[in-house]
């Protein structure tokens, strides 16, 4: 019984798999802009590369913004679907990362807006935003200064909580800067605000954040 055909097929498969791997490696080393162009040119693996690059980062951003991991994952899915549908409209003179974060940020804002239609949530949100905007720039809680060091894990949990306590419009800017390392200009594009607003919100957010965590930090 001849098995030569099987071997040939195996070799052909290996060559094909090898080519696919090499192609993936090549895509892995390409810039976002090159991967986007490859996807637009019909390279069917290029979109997968964009997903691989951004899925975790976007989940972190959306989760920190809306405070719900599962819903955050749904919104990241929706972000990729929108990118897929509108990639041909993307202005390639801009940064792809700014574009995809803008889409995710808008979806997160919509999510928070929909939630805030609940009258109780609306009242709490308005109050929190007003307090944050009108609180004098004092950061230290002089009433409470614990001597003991919190364990790191507990501290992390408190820090996460502190982020979630920031008012929405401060939180988005704060997460983009502190956790995603975006520049002021990128944040301004993503949030559709001017640079002055970005700086002011970021300063308020840092101040609020410092107020919340100061008692926990020796």
């Amino acid at each position: 019984m001849a098995r030569g055909g099987g071997k040939e097929k195996l070799v052909a498969d290996r060559v094909s798999t090898g080519k696919a791997k090499a192609h993936r490696l090549q895509l892995g080393e390409a810039t976002d802009s090159e991967v986007v162009q490859a996807s637009l040119d019909g390279d069917s693996t290029a979109f997968g590369e964009l997903v691989r690059r951004y899925d975790q980062r976007l989940l972190n951003f959306v989760y920190r913004t809306i405070g719900d991991r599962e819903r955050g994952e749904d919104l990241v899915q929706e972000t990729f679907v929108r990118v897929y549908r509108h990639l041909h409209r993307f202005d390639q003179s801009k940064k792809f990362s700014t574009w995809i974060y803008t889409i995710a940020s808008n979806l997160a804002k919509n999510e928070l807006r929909n939630r805030s239609r609940n009258p109780l949530v609306l009242f709490q949100t308005l109050k929190k935003n007003w307090d944050a905007d009108h609180r004098p720039l004092e950061w230290e809680d002089t009433q409470y200064k614990p001597d003991d060091l919190f364990r790191k894990r507990h501290l992390r949990a408190q820090v996460e909580k502190a982020v979630s306590q920031l008012p929405e419009h401060h939180r988005v800017v704060f997460v983009l800067r502190e956790m995603e390392g975006k520049t002021y200009e990128e944040i301004a594009d993503i949030t559709n605000c001017n640079l002055g607003t970005v700086k002011s919100r970021l300063n308020r957010a840092r101040n609020n954040f410092a107020s919340i965590i100061a008692p926990m930090i020796d």
Partner: peptide, 21 residues
Amino acid sequence: RYEAVVECGSSLLRSLPRPEL
């Protein structure tokens, strides 16, 4: 102290584990 708190907060934020998909 304000600067120390903000710096420490920033470093803690960056050390937070990223949520898994």
